[in-house]
Design a protein around this nucleic acid. Structure first.
Lengths: 82, 82
DNA sequence: TTGTCATAGGGAGAATTTTCCCTATTTTCG
DNA sequence: CGAAAATAGGGAAAATTCTCCCTATGACAA
């Protein structure tokens, strides 16, 4: 019987927090509400945007790409330094 | 009975491909193997790194942060333009 | 206050990634 | 060529996100 190591997905809360704040900042710079941004992302619901901005979900890089397209900026611009 | 719309997660294959290529390029610039990079990421296995570089998985932004730390670059540097 | 808009967040089920272990294929080096 | 190293990828179980729908809270104007 193998020793069963606990599976815990890696999650960088500090990074997620900063990333969410950046996204919010850029969204507001564009004068968009969460709902409007969700619409531009072809997302039926804006709860995901909300959770992203609050750093509550460890979302995927594809979604990062989607948001950057909707905000008309390079994905690079969404990321925090370091 | 509600109409059941099919759930399909958003996935940007083109973006994932370019991102993977960038990561590979930077890894090689640092003279690391996939295994060595995995080790620096505290990943027990290197198959994940391999799939990331090949654009086969839509990995999380936390993992992106992890890789950037291991490669000692800003997460920005890993992302493709646009 | 009342109503409206925007943000915050609960909850369930399905989809997908992540983790872990293994093997196959390809590349590199003696 | 042959061995060793590195990359590619199969597969299963579990963790977590994603999607969708709904409600609560907060902010702000009439």
């Amino acid at each position: 019987m193998k020793k069963q190591s606990k599976k815990v997905y890696f999650r960088d809360d500090v990074f997620l927090k900063k990333l969410g704040e950046n996204i919010r900042k850029i969204r507001l710079d564009h004068g968009l509400t969460q709902m409007e941004l969700a619409f531009k992302c072809d997302d039926k619901d804006y709860s995901q945007i909300n959770r992203v901005e609050l750093g509550k979900v460890n979302f995927s890089v594809s979604y990062l790409s989607l948001i950057s397209t909707a905000l008309e900026v390079s994905p690079k611009n969404l990321l925090p330094e370091e």
